[in-house]
Design a binder for these strands. Structure first.
Lengths: 233, 233
DNA sequence: GACACACGAGAGCAGCGCTCTCATCGCGTT
DNA sequence: AACGCGATGAGAGCGCTGCTCTCGTGTGTC
């Protein structure tokens, strides 16, 4: 029967979900390297070897958590963007960037796992690319929406991007940066990296004894970054 | 005797240095979490407990490696900057940024240790702040040199930084950003974070399937970032 | 020469990821 | 309805880790 088969698979999915949830709680408190498969099993009343029926290795468990993390921050950014009026491009940009920062501050270990150093010996598998692009998609959409509305006004301050970037820009136009010309696409990409650079620097301690009002400074900095790609202030 | 005492301390310093060098080699191949104090001891023909005479814990060994890393990337950036004509501000900026990227690509695990996620449970101690500021000092010096030469020309595209940033800017002026006004200091800080955001994104795989010619794009992006703070292109 | 201290070796503890074997139990097939 | 396969969980065990403790030995000091 199909029903009974799904029933068995349902209990399996349930346990898999419970393992990842327990693991995420441990991740939140102890960090990625402190995540112990045995501790997760212990808390669930299982023996460690039983967990291996669900995740072939600790790295696979981490992969699941990475995908969760990408989806969580992606959802947070999408929701922040969605709460703004569609034509308030600066408001959307600021809200999306703030959502990145807020989520990172609320989930530092998950942020580290996702946007920090890759775990040693661990290579991000293909499955992560989809969820990974959700944040970038939101930021890109804001820019292309502004362009479509005719309010995107990038200041002319850079030389043209290198010719090697043309194919990259074309690829980006097919996904999130519709109609965006090469030079703006190059700036958008750099801005995207810059936002996460700001968040990472704050989270990883580089702004210690440098920036006092981190929230206020972040708002200012991302507003400037928005201006760089041409979003109205 | 003072000589014998220094002799004893010399052999201790020598062994300490040898341990950190062995550890750094292991770090380069296996990454931070794969760094095993026992493996280091084994390679040196010592027993693991002997290493604890020199480093009270694995984290202290990591701290030494972090300081080494900060100094290494700092020296690389200083040298790259020093090889340029003093009044070629754009050349210095590009060379310094390239040095950051080149060093990161050449020493990915050390870069991860220093600018990636902080190792779990590990809190960067005070000793790291000095070496940590070397790269920032070079970048800041280029900007303040350009200002002193009268060639710094920041485009007016941002609102004023928040009032809470004034004290931060004043502190920055006392160290590396001499005479730099608040708004430019805020931009310089964001630019600094952005450069590392670009490098981290490339190193940690976010540019996978996005940017093809990473070196060419990086040059373009940091040139734009230099323009944002007012460096001539 | 006597004392103190630094040092290295070794054993040992608890924890880890992971593998293997074995008993059990549910489900589909004959 | 009985059989049998496969999924599951328990348990033992391997080699590794960080770290602690004790015990000789050697070195430098008074």
């Amino acid at each position: 029967m199909n029903a009974s088969r799904t029933a068995r698979e349902r209990v399996r999915a349930e346990l898999t979900r419970e393992i990842t949830e327990t693991a995420r709680r441990h991740l939140a408190t102890d960090g990625a390297a402190g995540l112990s498969l045995r501790a997760v099993a212990r808390e669930m009343g299982m023996v460690s070897s039983a967990v291996y029926r669900y995740f072939p290795s600790r790295d696979d468990l981490l992969t699941a958590l990475i995908i969760d993390g990408y989806n969580a921050i992606g959802a947070a950014v999408e929701q922040a963007d969605g709460a703004c009026r569609r034509d308030d491009h600066h408001g959307r940009w600021l809200a999306a960037c703030r959502a990145v920062r807020d989520w990172a501050l609320a989930h530092p270990h998950e942020y580290s796992l996702v946007y920090g150093s890759p775990v040693p010996g661990y290579q991000a598998p293909e499955q992560t690319v989809g969820p990974a692009s959700r944040v970038a998609a939101v930021l890109g959409k804001i820019i292309s929406d502004a362009l479509a509305s005719g309010v995107l006004d990038p200041p002319a301050l850079c030389p043209a991007p290198p010719g090697s970037f043309a194919s990259d820009a074309a690829r980006l136009r097919q996904s999130v940066l519709h109609e965006v010309p090469d030079d703006v696409a190059a700036l958008a990409l750099a801005t995207w990296a810059s936002v996460f650079g700001l968040v990472s620097f704050e989270l990883f301690g580089q702004f210690e004894n440098v920036v006092t009002d981190r929230g206020g400074y972040f708002d200012h900095a991302v507003t400037c970054l928005g201006r760089v790609v041409g979003l109205p202030a």
